[in-house]
């Protein structure tokens, strides 16, 4: 007790009496950090400030018209579609990725399977955008290979209501890169579940279902929530895949912004700015919540 106390005390004293940086070091620090901060201000902060400014400036000065115009039916539909797509693909990926990670990295898993899953996840999580869209068009597009094979077998999936170019089709495509992302995100948390916790639960009389319900899931919960939010955010802010698949014809928040920017629709640039600001606010809230949950688990360790 005494010993622990005195080392803590020493550390506090050391922190307080830490030598101030030499002027030379300050010079080094400024020279090394300033360019980065300057670039961040120009490349990230300034564009956001300009967006905010643009979204509230009309021809006659300050106006909230553009912000209010976000309530019109098109943008409401876009927001709804974006949320449904993000929620659906994040949910599916959460379950599939979570189960894969559990099988590959949970108790008694073979390390070879783990290595395989790790490598594959790293690649597949980066296989998004245009190439992914084309891979799915080649497979399940209107004239995709699988579509044609199924059609010759008497199953016309497009006649049955499926379309790759719809929200459900996009969900299928988004799941392709969100599942590996989920595996990457949740693996550390699953690995951190100590074997001793499971053994303890066993010796205390918990059956497998109780171990899952009372130990594993509650311990994983913050990580799962945090991962879900990140998956949702990835889907929510995605543009390339949706654009390449539908040429911007599907109504999502990101494609709407894209259409405004490329002049494909006759909207004022301020509307695009307002949409962008709205998205940034949503993403900021999501990231904040996710980090809050992330910190909870870190405290446990």
């Amino acid at each position: 007790m005494n010993l622990a106390h005195s080392t803590k005390h020493n550390r506090e004293v050391a922190a307080k009496t830490r030598r101030p940086l030499l002027p030379m070091h300050v010079l080094w620090a400024v020279a090394m950090i300033a360019p980065f901060l300057l670039l961040t201000v120009i490349g990230m902060i300034a564009p956001v400030i300009l967006l905010v400014a643009q979204s509230v400036s009309g021809p006659h000065g300050f106006t909230l018209d553009y912000i209010q115009s976000l309530a019109n039916p098109t943008y409401r539909l876009a927001a709804w579609n974006s949320i449904v797509l993000s929620f659906a693909s994040a949910s599916v990926s959460l379950v599939t990725g979570g189960v894969v990670a559990f099988i590959a990295f949970g108790s008694g898993a073979q390390s070879r399977l783990g290595a395989l899953v790790t490598s594959f996840s790293a690649v597949a999580a980066n296989f998004a955008g245009v190439p992914l869209a084309f891979a799915f068009i080649s497979t399940l597009g209107m004239f995709g290979l699988l579509t044609r094979v199924l059609r010759t077998a008497g199953i016309d999936i497009y006649a049955m209501g499926f379309s790759l170019y719809s929200i459900s089709g996009l969900t299928l495509v988004y799941t392709y890169f969100l599942t590996p992302l989920m595996i990457i995100l949740i693996t550390p948390a699953i690995r951190a579940i100590s074997q001793d916790w499971l053994a303890a639960a066993k010796s205390l009389g918990a059956n497998p279902a109780q171990r899952l319900q009372l130990v594993v899931l509650p311990i994983l919960a913050p990580s799962l929530i945090s991962a879900f939010i990140l998956l949702f955010g990835s889907a929510f802010s995605g543009y390339a895949t949706a654009y390449a698949l539908t040429s911007g014809n599907i109504v999502l928040l990101t494609t709407e912004i894209g259409n405004v920017l490329t002049g494909d629709v006759a909207s004022a640039p301020q509307t695009g700015a307002a949409l962008s600001v709205g998205m940034i606010v949503v993403m900021a809230v999501l990231v904040w919540i996710s980090r809050w949950f992330g910190q909870r688990t870190r405290r446990w360790k």
Partner: peptide, 27 residues
């Protein structure tokens, strides 16, 4: 200052690519 860098590293996630372009096209 590490917090500041951490923040800068999250910003690209908070600001979707499409919104970043929108901002840049104002520039």
């Amino acid at each position: 200052l590490r917090m500041l860098l951490e923040l800068a590293a999250i910003l690209p996630f908070v600001i979707p690519g499409i919104a970043l372009v929108a901002g840049l096209s104002v520039l």
